[in-house]
Design a protein around this nucleic acid. Structure first.
Lengths: 190, 190, 190, 190
DNA sequence: CATGAATGAGCTTTCATTCAT
DNA sequence: TATGAATGAAAGCTCATTCAT
């Protein structure tokens, strides 16, 4: 008896990621996903309940991978600015390295395709950043404003820069990153 | 004067906008668009070459409407900060009023569905803002950095705030708008 | 503009009837039905909401055709035995002539495939026979027993005879019919 | 003594019976049958050649169980009417007790799914009843007519009554049974 | 003997688009 | 210009059956 291999699951998720990224959701039919992953269409349904489930899982997976990278080397004991800088560059570098995953995530944020329950689930993983900001606010380093505004101005701009970078309109090298970081920090620091 | 024909065109564009917005691209079949616009499916093809063309036109249309609003009451003779403030609030208020149109545009920015040629065409309309920034840089009011970074930090955050607002996670009233503007301005001012 | 032809509807119903009859429900895929009716699979859905709907409609259609034939030349003023004899032979001859339709109906009676709501709807058409039996009971010609038992003994046996006939096990000619009628009548007469 | 294996065979047959009965042939996939019987889908093929074979076996099995019950306590030495009465009530009571099995058999009689070879095989088991009728005809108690007609009028009506009973349209209690028996007997007695 | 994974073929249904009027 | 009917192609998904252990 064969056992379900997580390898196949991964292959399916990756195939989906690539297809969705190159041509959009509507151009990622199950048949193509199967072919790209090297399995039969029917096999997909051993690993995922439906196409929607596959997309949801891919979203969660990507989000987890993303947040894991975001907090590499970070520790709560760090000074606020140092901590933020670390996280910010972690995110930026992840986006640059994992163009595919991150532009998939960008698509997910604006599409009504992802179930809102799944979206909320993914939010949880970002808590350390929110806690860092709260600490910064207590220490009067960060502006005492809503975390949504902090996120919009400090982190979200990276999404735009990355998509410009991917399209080739703008080259986001380490120098530009530093400049962008300065702008981000200026927007939230007291 | 609006002819009968152009009325139908408008109706089709609006129907598409509503459908895409409520359920995503994949839930906006031509038959539903036709029904919602009160015409026959065949009629769509008298006004648009294909579904892709319809989407493209809708994108361009929305972008034009958006930029028109962005520059209402703006004149090149305005002081830089005043001008930016005007444009920023124009954009913000447009997004709040026209949730549908603006979240459609947000979807378009991240989806590979829009032809890149069309996307470039739409960029043109934003020139006055870029020119304002250039002026601000000459007057040493605005940071001397790439316009992509300026845009990412000063304008793009609104997209995030708006989608949070639409989802009900965060209420973007006039008070919050002022706070958000301050953050935006801090990120780009010298 | 073309108009929906009831011809096509009929063709689809007949195609379904033939396929179901020769090979059972499970061997009547929409694609074959379409081919046999000379239309595209998609066209079926212009005339029927779903496969279930197609089957339901076919059942209703067949049942109506059947009952219409059952009461040809019958009038309430007829003497009870004459009336019953007429109806009984109408039914028998219809079954013999329309083997296909009637063995389809036989299948429907025993299968859980037909929605019970539809089944009840079809029952209505049989009322004149029940009324005849009531009259017969008042005149003390027919046994004063439940109509279900009357039906089971007087009419239902024909279903068995017909399916034997169809299979070739037993030839149901006019002579045998007369014998069978006698048995039916003996079972319900006082 | 029942071996482990034959237990599994029984479980599979019963699972199939239940599924087919509740939802029809088309809603009894092998995977569900396996699950309900508590075995792997692959295991089914150790006991049955194919799904068709499984259905055939189930039909034969049910038919044998049915006929065994039909002739309980019956002996060729009995007087004709007594014998018939015994058999008739045996059948009726079996149908009432074993609703599932008997409505499965009813489905089988009208469906083209059962191989005709298998159907003939099952006929064999009914011989004692036919012999009883022959005896009755020699003794001039039973009408000298084809056995198919005898069966159609004396036994087959029970199928209708049972399905009405199962649907809840008509309650078939012991009183009604007696009435129905009278009708059956009247139809075949000389 | 028994299994859960795996699958190719086929299912019902929908879609963007064209036809005939 | 405008239509509703019509459609080939393809979508998501399921099924009876086989594979590998």
């Amino acid at each position: 008896m064969r056992t379900k291999s997580s390898q196949k699951r991964e292959a399916l998720l990756e195939a989906t990621l690539n297809l969705v990224n190159n041509n959009g959701f509507h151009a990622a039919p199950m048949s193509k996903i199967a072919k790209l992953a090297g399995v039969s269409p029917a096999t997909i349904y051993l690993y995922f309940k439906s196409k929607q489930d596959l997309i949801n899982q891919l979203y969660i997976n990507s989000k987890i991978a993303f947040t894991e990278e975001a907090f590499v080397n970070y520790h709560e004991s760090m000074p606020v600015k140092k901590g933020f800088e670390l996280i910010w560059f972690n995110i930026a570098n992840y986006k640059i390295k994992q163009t595919c995953a991150s532009s998939f995530l960008a698509q997910c944020e604006t599409t009504p395709m992802i179930d809102s329950k799944i979206r909320e689930e993914a939010l949880e993983y970002f808590k350390p950043l929110l806690q860092l900001w709260e600490r910064g606010q207590q220490e009067e380093i960060i502006k005492p404003i809503a975390s949504h505004i902090l996120y919009a101005n400090a982190i979200y701009p990276l999404t735009f820069l990355l998509s410009s970078h991917k399209r080739g309109d703008f080259i986001l090298d380490q120098e530009q990153l530093k400049i962008a970081f300065k702008a981000a920090w200026d927007s939230i620091k007291l």
